[in-house]
């Protein structure tokens, strides 16, 4: 079961962002979200290296080495954008000013623990960057991820096996197979067409519950 493509996952997430939200985009899948925001809805995207009002990548030849995102890629600014230092930018998360961080994830546990910065035994020096700061302080944290590893092993688990980014922070999980709320355990709100609840349970490493109003997962027309 492959379910949604990466673009379809990010399209699905974009449909749920409320008008006027300040949203941080984590590295990886979340960076694909902005083009899918429905027209007429204003979302202000933050990049934690000091940008609010991040626009799309520049046209070739228009890159500015002094205007980059947290992934160190050149970006543009939208009208109304602002710049701040790292001190001011990083108080926006723990201070509760960012409405929703959208974060990539290696693993999420049934109580909302997030692991998204380090896999085991990768032989690299440890480096967490901004991952832990982003996961702390917002009322909602949405995780975007493939439902299983390439080998088909679950990545939604009773307990994360990788080093944690933050405990009990994820409130919603969007995968290629389902949309799941973390609310006293895992509540399945949407399942991709062609997959039933029992099959989804076998691909999930923790007990899931079916929401009474569970719907087929929406995709772009």
């Amino acid at each position: 079961m492959t379910g949604l493509s990466r673009e379809q996952i990010t399209w699905r997430v974009a449909q749920d962002l409320p008008d006027g939200a300040y949203v941080n985009l984590g590295i990886g899948l979340p960076t694909l979200v902005p083009p899918f925001v429905p027209s007429g809805r204003e979302i202000v995207f933050q990049s934690e290296n000091g940008l609010l009002g991040v626009g799309p990548a520049p046209a070739p030849g228009a890159e500015d080495p002094q205007l980059i995102n947290a992934g160190k890629q050149p970006v543009t600014l939208l009208p109304g954008a602002s710049i701040s230092s790292h001190s001011d930018s990083f108080l926006m998360m723990p201070g509760g000013h960012i409405d929703i961080p959208l974060l990539g994830a290696y693993q999420v546990s049934e109580r909302g623990d997030l692991a998204n910065w380090m896999t085991e035994g990768d032989g690299k020096p440890p480096g967490v960057g901004g991952a832990m700061d982003l996961a702390v302080g917002a009322k909602q944290v949405w995780a975007l991820m493939e439902h299983t590893t390439r080998k088909g092993e679950p990545r939604i688990l009773e307990r994360c096996t990788y080093e944690l980014t933050a405990p009990r922070c994820v409130t919603r999980i969007y995968t290629n197979l389902a949309m799941i709320e973390v609310r006293d355990g895992l509540l399945v709100r949407e399942i991709v067409e062609g997959l039933d609840f029992a099959a989804l349970q076998t691909l999930t490493g923790a007990a899931i519950r079916l929401a009474p109003d569970c719907r087929p997962m929406r995709t772009a027309a």
């Binding site: 934690e48 930018s89 020096p125 832990m132």
Partner: peptide
């Protein structure tokens, strides 16, 4: 950096980015 760190020639105190700024 990785080579020197893994060879034990370089110490690293790693911080969350916002914690470092603060």
């Amino acid at each position: 950096f990785a080579e020197q760190y893994l060879a034990g020639k370089l110490k690293l105190e790693f911080n969350p980015q916002g914690t470092l700024a603060e």
